[in-house]
Amino acid sequence: MSTTTVARKFNYSRLIAPIALIIFAVGWYEFSVVYIPNANNQLVANDNLAVYVPIQQIQGYLAALIDATYLTVSVGLIMFAYYFVKLLRFRSAR
């Protein structure tokens, strides 16, 4: 079997997807830290308390989110490693 044939059989999106997952998780966390508290403060400054969220809740969200982010990044790395090894096996099978 030629290298080209073997390489064609490997679905590269499975290698890229975990990286996308990691970027999504880290990006979402960064977004949450920077923009959500800021937008919430804007509401207070504009006397709009109808959709304002107490600060304790935002802190709870960020605390839970950091754990979820660690978990997601870890899972993403494991997936990436798994599919990377698979790719190497495919390539070495030439």
Binding site: Y35, I36, Q42, N48, V51, Y52
Partner: peptide, 22 residues
Amino acid sequence: MPFGVNLALNTPWYNDALPILD
């Protein structure tokens, strides 16, 4: 939000029915 637009400030529904986070 990253573009400086906060719908919760003056857009209907966003400003009276949708908490900014839950």
